[in-house]
Every structure is written in structure tokens, then in C-alpha cells.
Simulated scan of single mutants.
Amino acid sequence: MTRMIAGKRYYGKGVTIDEAEAREAKKLIKQIVGSGGISYVGDFLPILKLVDYNGVKKRVVELKEKIDAFIQGLVDEHRRKKGDPELADSMISHLLRLQESQPEDYSDFMIKGLVFVLLVAGTDTSSLALESIMANLLNNPEKLKKAQDEIDSVIGHDRLVEESDVSNLPYLQCIIFETLRLNTIVPLLVPHTSSADCNIGGYFVPRDTIVMVNAWAIHRDPELWEDPLSFNPKRFEGSGGEKQHKLILPFGLGRRTCPGATLAQRVMGWTLGLLIQCFDWKRVSKEEIDMREGRGTTMPKVVPLELMCKVRPLMEKLVPKD
């Protein structure tokens, strides 16, 4: 995401990395996501806003200032290095070029807002989803083997999986969909407001009411899913899987669906395909991986995932040993 947005890489051997900037970026994203799901009692007892109960407002303001300073730094760097080939094709560079011709439509405020949304929505969510996918596969090694066999059959051992290959790996996609169902990374979708009086589940909902959709509960509803607590990618296979696809909504539905859904699925599919193709994976112990979910706007694992891996013998010629 940072390569697309700012033309930067914060990870990777042989890449010039500002370690302090990388640490700050990762820290800010974790703070933003961790603060997104908090409840502020001042919203329910307004008198507490006079004293900033628990210092929530102070922390939010401090976080906002850090975020603004970080993203403004990225924008200013692009201005200073205008013409730098490494930054020329980044999203910020494109927006700054538009700012020159349409300054009223592409202010720094608007550019920073776009960068903020993409960094928050497109980084932590994807990494947590991949963590849950790998945890599920290591708890179900026969499914990992099936995915590996599919990649070997379709791609072979003479080249690495490319982004364009993801659409030709249906079982790999089923694994991703099943994880997004069982381990919904954003359990409560972005709040919506009813545009008119309506009835939802037998309840009258007046116009302009904030509506929260509990995707996590929908994805585990036994009336909608057979054996809903099991990890079963096969439920999304074939013609029967089309019906199941319509029942999951990790990215929302309709006009307000997440505009990054296609990008997220391709990035996760490509990354997962490479991990499975290039390495053999094992749990660090004989016990199943702990799948308990933590708190926050997104749901991290309570116990961070630890795995062991080694390069597959057939892939040694394509994967650097160091």
C-alpha cells in the first residue's frame, strides 16, 4: 500500500529504508485501528465532556496531530522531490499534478484524507486477514496441501505465482472467502444511516438512524450456514458456491461497498499464493493455533501467529536462500 500511495517501501532487503519513519508508520496504524472501537462515556453522559473523562479527547487530538504531521511529511517530500523517478508514479504524485490544474478540488486536506483512508483501511485489514488464513490452514493441513497441489498443477515450479494467476486458482480464492466468513476482520461494518423510514428484522427504524451491521454474526448464523463454526473452503466451490458468495459481506454491499474489495482480494490472493508455493509450513507446537479474537475496529488474534517454514526443495532455484 505504501508503494502505491507514496512510492515507498518500509520492508525488504536491499531497499533504502528510513527505519524511524517505518516504525512511526506502523505504530500510527496500530494506534488508529486500536482506538477506532472505543466507547466514550461522554457521548452518553454529556456532563463528563467538561472534564474529558479518562482523557479520551486528549488522546484522540494527539493522535490526530501525529497522523496529520506524518501524512503532510509524505506530501511535502513529494513536492521537494518532484521529478524523482521513484516517486513519479505514486498516488500522491498524481494528486499533486492534479492540484496544479485544479487547486480548488485537490487541496492538501483532500489529498491527506485520501491517503489516511487508504493506509488505515488497506494495511492492517489485509495483514490480519492473511494471519487468520495461515492460522486456519495450519490447523487444517489437508486444506493447505490441497491449495499447494492446485498451485503446483496450474503454475508449476519454473516460475512464481503472478497477480494475474489468482483468478485461475479457484480453491485459493475459496480459502480466502471462507476465512473472511469465519474470521471477519471488520466485525461491525462502517456505520450507515437509514435514508428513509424502514423495517429491519421486524423492528421499525426511523429515517436518519445510525445502523450498525454485525457481519461477524451473519457469517456464523446457523440458519444461513451449515456447520458455521468449521473452516470449510469447499462451501464456496462450484455452482453451489455462488449462493454462498451472496451471503458474505466482509466488504459491505450495494452502493456503499468497500471500493478496495477487488484490490484486497488480489493482493491477498497473490501474497498467499506465493507463501504456499514457495514454502513448507508447520506449527511451532503440536497444539492447534489459538484462534481467539482480540478487541478493536479490526479483530487481531489474542495470541500473535508464530509458524515455522522452509523453502520447498522444488522452489530452491527461484527463492533466494538468504
Rank of each mutant, 00 (worst) to 15 (best):
G296N: 09
Q102G: 03
L182Y: 03
G201I: 04
M91I: 05
L229N: 10
L128N: 12
D18R: 12
L253Y: 11
K8E: 07
H78R: 06
P228H: 02
V311Y: 07
K243R: 15
K64I: 00
V267N: 13
K317H: 15
D322S: 13
E237A: 13
P228L: 02
L130C: 10
A69T: 03
R23E: 13
K145H: 10
E162G: 12
K310N: 12
V154P: 00
H219V: 02
W225A: 08
L144R: 08
K145G: 06
I151Q: 00
G240V: 06
G254F: 03
G42Y: 05
K143N: 07
E77V: 00
D108E: 05
S285L: 09
W216T: 03
V33R: 00
R80D: 04
V56Q: 11
P313C: 11
V166C: 07
I17C: 08
N54T: 01
G113K: 10
I248K: 07
R9A: 03
M308G: 10
E306M: 14
N139Y: 10
I38L: 14
V75F: 03
G113E: 04
P250Q: 14
V56L: 11
H78I: 01
R79G: 02
I71F: 01
L229G: 07
W216V: 01
E150C: 04
P259D: 07
R256V: 01
P191Q: 11
M91C: 10
E316I: 00
V319Q: 10
S194T: 02
L182W: 07
N232Q: 12
L249N: 01
L272H: 07
N54I: 00
G12M: 09
Q265T: 05
E142G: 02
G156R: 10
D124V: 02
Y11M: 15
W270A: 12
G201S: 08
V51H: 06
D152T: 03
E62W: 06
I200Y: 04
L274E: 08
L63M: 13
H192M: 13
G83V: 00
